[in-house]
């Protein structure tokens, strides 16, 4: 366990009755980094986050936040964590200002600190003009912003955000991402989301979880690389032959026929792409097919995500 890690998860598991929602996952989030927590619906993201925020007790394993054990030192953990729950539950009958003030008090902030911090987070989350509104009358997006402001209120070293950008409009999403990016350095952020661009843009690292297990983790680039880059090759020739021919080249992991006909287009997946390109070009000219086009296609995280979390393709 490195000293620099703010969140350390060690074989954490959670069972709802017989159903194992989180199955012995381990990961670390280094200090000052923003880590994306990815996974399909029902993967166990929220469950993991709830254990980290001391809302749910783990069934097994340990986790610590900012050096405190979530089980034994839960109060300390709670002090260090800023948490935006998935459903952003708020007191609808309160005004934004009152609500933030209340939360500030729960965190034991004194009056002047509260005032200062409320003004600050309100400005950062663009809710300054809505401070006097009753929360129940706010739109979903504004409530989400109040939730984010609430999570940042006590300036916690660790922020855990469960799908923070849900319900925000595109420009707000962009702003929110910028906001989160800005947090890097001072804050350690665990960001759960489905939106992959978000992760790519904001996160230094990504943890992908499916069916309660971690299926991959690393920087976005690493993961993309793991998938390998793809080539799109457009050839005038019979698709079947083209495919099997290319497939025979060592280092090729897969060929998909993307377009049939006199001119066929295939997608090629493989490791060393520069070398491959030469080999493919040589092969095509050897066979006498006309090479119309060949371009590298940057592998998307989305592709990786779908591939890695889709049980069907994993089996293939």
């Amino acid at each position: 366990m490195s000293h620099a890690a703010d969140i350390v998860v060690d074989r954490l598991s959670k069972a709802y009755g017989a159903f194992l929602a989180v199955d012995r996952i381990s990961f670390e989030v280094p200090k000052g980094t923003i880590v994306g927590f990815l996974g399909p619906n029902g993967a166990g993201k929220t469950t993991t986050i709830r254990m980290l925020t001391c809302y749910l007790p783990p069934t097994g394993g340990t986790a610590s936040v900012a050096g405190y054990d979530v089980f034994r030192q839960s109060l300390d953990v709670r002090k260090k964590i800023g948490y935006l729950p998935e459903s952003t539950p708020l007191y609808t009958e309160m005004r934004v200002q009152e609500y933030l003030d209340f939360k500030g008090k729960l965190h034991g902030m004194d009056r002047s600190t509260r005032q200062k911090r409320i003004a600050e987070v309100a400005a950062r989350c663009w809710i300054t003009d809505r401070l006097q509104s009753v929360i129940g009358t706010l739109s979903k997006g504004y409530r989400q912003r109040v939730g984010i402001a609430d999570a940042m209120l006590h300036n916690p070293p660790v922020l855990v955000l469960d799908e923070p950008t849900v319900g925000l409009d595109p420009s707000q999403i962009r702003e929110a991402r910028r906001l989160i990016s800005e947090l890097a350095g001072d804050h350690t952020v665990l960001l759960s989301t489905h939106i992959l661009q978000e992760v790519e843009m904001v996160c230094k690292r990504v943890i992908i979880i499916a069916n309660g297990k971690i299926v991959a983790q690393g920087t976005p680039d690493e993961l993309k690389n793991r998938l390998g880059s793809g080539l799109i090759v457009e050839v005038r020739g019979p698709a079947d032959q083209v495919r099997s021919a290319i497939n025979a080249i060592p280092g090729i992991t897969g060929v998909d026929v993307l377009q049939n006909g006199p001119v066929c287009r295939v997608g090629v997946r493989g490791k060393n792409s520069a070398e491959l390109r030469e080999q493919i070009a040589a092969l095509v000219s050897l066979r006498g097919w006309g090479l119309r086009e060949m371009r590298t296609e940057g592998a998307s995280l989305e592709e990786f995500f779908v591939r890695i979390t889709d049980p069907g393709s994993a089996a293939a």
Partner: peptide
């Protein structure tokens, strides 16, 4: 019912 218990529970109060 509203889920605010999550917010309360994760606040630093016993």
């Amino acid at each position: 019912r509203s889920g605010r218990i999550e917010m309360l529970r994760t606040s630093p109060i016993t």
